[in-house]
């Protein structure tokens, strides 16, 4: 039995201009797997608001919870306008609950990018700049392009009036798709060719790293690359959320390390999670793998 499983990692880092001005990173990312749903999110807080990082986090966390709880509603609903309006309205209501809310949602302005996978279905959404990419049949493709205003320092935010009109939704099956990547505009400076409208080869490499190594390790690797390589080509914050599909035969796990195997403990697994230090395969490799594969 072939084991198939989505592995996930995310990272963000403050841009050079924010470090210089002693302002926080305004990008916020999250990846999660729960109850059979894999979710990637990213929001880039607007430069004009000193509290946009709070908005970015709130947007990410609320959208994560909505996707987790109501993936089917979003996926199956044929009234796309209703879906968009409902999502934005929920996010605006969320802002009102935040400590420090001053009556103007613009203080929490941010973009929004997400991708959610359940079974063989995916749903992605994009409002503003940044890029959503996929790896399909071994090739990188842009799923959603940045939507800027007419000038370099303009885009659309969740808090823009009638922002639902700028929310682009994508849904389909994951057949042939083996990777998702969300990036903020800062990361896109290095990972997206604006002229040729294509993604950088580096993305394939990151997806491959994630396929072969523990999630936490690749999360650290992404952080290090954002900090020392990607950030060099922009003054803006940089962030990434990625997911890689792993397809392996059970025997391929025999020599895998414990922390790698732990990433495969299915979200519906009843297995107690073993500590990262413990080599699962040292006890009874085949039994461990069979149990894991059954749960995925």
């Amino acid at each position: 039995m072939t084991i198939t499983h989505w592995k996930i990692a995310h990272a963000q880092t403050a841009g050079r201009s924010h470090i210089k001005n002693n302002t926080p990173c305004q990008d916020f990312t999250l990846t999660m797997q729960q109850d059979g749903t894999t979710i990637l999110l990213l929001a880039d807080g607007a430069g004009f608001s000193p509290t946009s990082h709070i908005g970015a986090e709130a947007v990410v966390r609320k959208t994560a919870s909505l996707l987790h709880e109501t993936f089917d509603f979003y996926y199956l609903n044929l009234d796309e306008t209703e879906v968009k309006k409902q999502l934005i309205e929920t996010l605006w209501k969320e802002f009102e609950t935040l400590e420090g809310y001053d009556g103007d949602v613009k203080q929490y302005a941010s973009t929004l990018l997400f991708a959610a996978i359940k079974g063989d279905q995916f749903l992605a959404g994009h409002l503003g700049d940044g890029v959503i990419g996929i790896e399909a049949e071994g090739e990188l493709k842009v799923l959603s392009f940045p939507e800027n205003g007419q000038f370099a320092n303009t885009t659309y935010f969740v808090t823009t009036e009638e922002s639902w009109e700028h929310l682009r939704l994508y849904k389909g099956t994951t057949e042939n798709i083996t990777g998702f990547v969300l990036m903020s505009d800062g990361s896109a400076e290095s990972l997206f060719n604006k002229r040729e409208k294509r993604l950088a080869p580096a993305i394939k490499k990151m997806l491959e790293w994630l396929r072969e190594h523990p999630n936490q390790k690749i999360q650290d690797v992404l952080s290090a690359n954002l900090d020392s390589v990607i950030k060099e080509q922009t003054h803006d914050d940089c962030s990434l959320s990625i997911a890689s599909l792993v397809k392996k035969e059970p025997e391929e796990f025999v020599t895998a390390a414990g922390d790698y195997l732990n990433d495969f403990k299915g979200i519906r697994s009843d297995l107690p999670v073993k500590s990262h230090e413990e080599e699962v395969i040292s006890e009874d490799p085949i039994e461990a793998i069979e149990t894991v594969s059954h749960d995925i």
């Binding site: 997206f192 290090a224 990607i230 080509q233």
Partner: peptide, 15 residues
């Protein structure tokens, strides 16, 4: 685990 420049894109600065 470090990306090299040749794997990245170099976009022109906004003007």
């Amino acid at each position: 685990f470090m990306l090299s420049k040749i794997e990245l894109e170099e976009n022109p600065s906004p003007r």
